[in-house]
C-alpha cells in the first residue's frame, strides 16, 4: 500500500481510467499544459494529448454543457471546475441538462459525466472563493454527489464515478489536496452509495464528511482522553443519496448524534441527517441531535473573522460534552 497525497490519488485515477478507455477525457481550465490548479491532471496532457486533456476557455456553463453533450454519444468526460464558486455558472447545464436528461427522455439518453470541483474555506480567500456548495448539489434529483475525505476515497470514488452511467458531482476541498493517506496498490472502486465508520465508539455518533471528518477525529481523541467519552465517527462520503442505513445503525448503537459540517446549517447536510434520524429512529435517541455548522455569513477575509465563521474541533468537543453532560 502506497502513501499518496489527495491530488496524487485523483491524478492516478484519471490516468488509469484514461488508459482503460479511450473515450475518457478530462476538461477544465488550466488542466492540460499547465497541469491543473491542484495538479489533479499533472502529466496527462503529455501522455494523452490535447484532444483528451482539454484546456477550456473560461466558460463554465459552456464547457460543462459541451462535456454533457459529448457524454450523450459515449464520451466520458471528467470536468474539473476550478472552484465550486464558479460552478454556479455551470449550474444551468448540470441541473437542467445532465441531471434531467435520462428522466425526460424516458431512459433513452444519459449523461455519464463526472464533475469535480474544489470547495471549502481555505486561507483568507474571501467571500467569492470560500463557498461550500455541496448542499446545493445534494438537492438535485438525478445527480449523484460524493465527497472524499481522504486519498483512498478520492481515488476510488473517481474511478467508480467515471464508469457509472449517471452524472456524478465530486466535492473536493481546497485544503485537502496535499493530505497524505494510504491508497491500495491494486485497482480499487468505491461504492457510490454508502458511508464508512471512521472510528468506532459507543457514547455518541459524530457525523462528518470531507474535511469535517478530520475535525471529528481530533475531537474524538480529546473526548476519549480528557472526558472518557467514546465517539463513533461516520464518514458520509456519499451525500446524495445519503446512507440512511448507515446513519440509523450508528444512532441505534450510540443513541446520540452530532452532525459536523463546514457549511452553514440552513438547508444543509445536518438538516438532512437529522430528518433521517427523526424519520427512522427517533425513539432510539437519548438526546436531541445537534449540528455544529458554519455561521450564516459570506466568508470574511480577516483571519479571525474567517476562523469564527467556520466550526472547529473545540466546538465539536463542547457540543458533545453538553449533550453527554460531562
Amino acid at each position: 500500500m502506497a502513501e499518496l497525497m489527495y491530488w496524487e490519488a485523483i491524478r492516478r485515477a484519471h490516468d488509469e481510467e484514461m488508459a482503460h478507455d479511450p473515450m475518457v477525457i478530462c476538461m477544465g481550465e488550466d488542466i492540460g499544459v499547465a497541469g491543473g490548479t491542484y495538479k489533479a491532471t499533472q502529466g496527462l496532457y503529455a501522455k494523452y494529448g490535447a484532444e483528451r486533456v482539454v484546456d477550456t476557455p473560461i466558460s463554465e456553463n459552456g464547457y460543462t454543457g459541451l462535456g454533457i453533450g459529448a457524454s450523450f454519444l459515449g464520451v466520458r468526460p471528467v470536468i474539473e471546475i476550478m472552484s465550486v464558486n464558479f460552478a454556479w455558472l455551470a449550474m444551468d447545464q448540470i441541473f437542467n441538462s445532465a441531471a434531467k436528461v435520462r428522466y425526460m427522455s424516458g431512459g433513452q439518453l444519459t449523461a455519464p459525466v463526472v464533475i469535480r470541483s474544489a470547495g471549502g474555506t481555505a486561507h483568507q480567500l474571501g467571500a467569492q472563493h470560500s463557498a461550500r456548495m455541496e448542499k446545493v448539489f445534494m438537492g438535485i434529483a438525478g445527480l449523484r454527489v460524493v465527497t472524499p475525505s481522504n486519498p483512498r476515497q478520492a481515488y476510488g470514488l473517481l474511478k467508480s464515478a467515471v464508469r457509472c452511467d449517471d452524472p456524478v458531482y465530486i466535492n473536493e476541498h481546497e485544503l485537502m489536496y496535499n493530505m497524505k493517506g494510504e491508497v491500495p496498490d491494486d485497482e480499487y472502486f468505491m461504492p457510490l452509495e454508502g458511508s464508512e465508520v471512521a472510528r468506532e465508539g459507543r457514547d455518541v455518533t459524530l457525523f462528518g464528511y470531507n474535511i469535517s471528518v478530520h475535525w471529528c477525529l481530533q475531537a474524538a481523541a480529546t473526548l476519549a482522553k480528557d472526558f472518557g467519552i467514546e465517539a463513533e465517527i461516520i464518514d458520509l462520503y456519499t451525500l446524495s443519496p445519503l446512507d440512511r442505513a448507515g446513519i440509523v445503525a450508528s444512532v441505534r448503537k450510540t443513541h446520540r448524534a452530532v452532525i459536523v459540517e463546514e457549511a452553514e446549517a440552513a438547508v444543509g447536510v445536518g438538516a438532512e441527517v437529522m430528518a433521517i434520524i427523526n424519520e427512522e429512529c427517533f425513539f432510539e435517541l437519548d438526546a436531541a441531535p445537534v449540528r455544529v455548522s458554519a455561521v450564516n455569513v459570506p466568508i470574511p477575509y480577516n483571519h479571525k473573522l474567517e476562523k469564527a465563521a467556520i466550526p472547529n474541533v473545540g466546538d465539536i468537543v463542547a457540543a458533545v460534552r453538553k449533550m453527554v453532560g460531562k
Binding site: 454533457i68 453533450g69 459529448a70 457524454s71 464520451v75
Partner: peptide
C-alpha cells in the same frame, strides 16, 4: 454547448 459536445464526440 450540448451540440458542440456531440460534435466533439
Amino acid at each position: 454547448p450540448l451540440a458542440a459536445g456531440m460534435a466533439k464526440a
